Simulated scan of single mutants.
Amino acid sequence: MKDKILLVEDDIDLILELKTFLQKEGFEVSTATGQTQALLILEKKNFDIALLDINLKDGDGFSLYKKMKNHYEIPVIFLSALDDEYHTVTGLQLGADDYIAKPFRPRELVTRIKNTLRRSQKSALVEIDDLQIDVQNAKVLKNEQEINLTVLEYKLILIFLNHRGKIVSRDLLIDEIFNLSGEIIQDNTLTVYIKRIREKIENDPKSPQYIKTIRGQGYLFE
């Protein structure tokens, strides 16, 4: 499976150059020219890494990163023509995984991307109370005991994880399942899958701790 990159950059020529190069290197690349477009794309698709330019037409990469950090578990590399200590330190202090100054060689960027992905995959264990989600090994554990999940159940948990702390509509869940696996499921089938997941991960499925129903809006994973 190809690693998916979100490239946020306001220089159209650079977008085309980097997208072409990264695709030749085996990555799947989606692009945005500003904060608003990037956030809309993130609502519809999961990514393995994001490349954020600092200077954007509708804000800056730092503020976009702060918004992303609240809802998505995605490693980030900042791209910037501002090669100075202040911007480098600011980006890294915010929690970014790397910072590369323009102009850079595309080959150097690919190396940075691969190194960042390797580090993030090694530490891709999310712990929420007595639940552990091991993204690297595609496992979910409860009290350190592996839970037997179907492929689709696991993918649903990943979708919830990527939107942790945010209400997710049923339509969005159905769309993201299709984006992840190409499977089309019906609304009533989604209800069955969520019921099964709750039975496996919740201490009390009738009063869920992790996957909560928000009446009229969707679900909230906490």
Rank of each mutant, 00 (worst) to 15 (best):
M1S: 15
D3R: 13
I5L: 05
L6N: 08
L6C: 07
E9H: 03
D10E: 10
D11S: 12
I12R: 10
I15S: 07
I15Y: 10
L16E: 14
L18A: 10
K19T: 13
T20S: 15
F21S: 06
K24A: 13
E25I: 01
E25R: 14
E28D: 14
E28R: 05
A32E: 03
A32H: 05
A32I: 05
T33W: 00
T33S: 14
G34R: 05
T36V: 10
L39R: 04
L42T: 08
L42N: 06
E43N: 15
E43L: 11
K44C: 02
K45D: 14
K45I: 04
I49V: 11
I49E: 02
L52A: 09
N55D: 11
L56R: 04
L56I: 09
K57M: 04
K57G: 05
D58K: 06
D60C: 12
L64C: 07
L64W: 07
L64P: 07
Y65W: 11
K67A: 12
K67M: 12
M68V: 11
K69D: 13
N70P: 00
N70G: 00
H71Q: 08
E73Y: 12
E73N: 13
V76N: 00
I77Q: 03
L79S: 05
D84Y: 00
E85G: 00
H87F: 14
G91V: 06
L92M: 14
Q93S: 10
Q93R: 13
G95C: 04
A96F: 01
D97H: 06
D98N: 13
Y99I: 08
A101V: 01
F104V: 11
R105H: 14
P106N: 11
R107S: 13
R107A: 13
L109Q: 06
I113S: 05
K114L: 12
N115D: 07
L117S: 03
R118W: 00
R119S: 12
Q121P: 00
Q121S: 13
Q121F: 01
Q121H: 09
Q121L: 05
L125Q: 10
V126Y: 14
V126W: 03
V126A: 04
I128M: 12
L131D: 09
L131I: 15
L131G: 09
I133E: 01
D134Y: 09
A138K: 15
A138Y: 08
A138Q: 14
V140W: 05
K142L: 01
N148K: 12
T150P: 02
T150G: 15
E153M: 02
K155M: 01
L156T: 02
I159T: 03
F160Y: 09
F160R: 04
H163F: 14
G165T: 10
G165L: 10
K166I: 10
V168M: 11
V168L: 15
S169M: 03
R170W: 00
E176K: 15
E176L: 13
I177P: 06
F178E: 14
L180V: 02
L180C: 10
L180G: 00
S181A: 08
G182T: 08
E183S: 11
E183D: 11
D187I: 05
D187Y: 07
N188Y: 12
T189E: 14
T189S: 13
L190Q: 05
I194W: 01
I194M: 02
I197C: 03
E202K: 03
S207I: 04
Q209L: 10
Q209Y: 13
I211S: 03
K212A: 01
K212C: 02
G216Y: 10
G216W: 07
Q217D: 05
Y219C: 06
Y219T: 08
L220F: 08
F221H: 10
F221D: 08
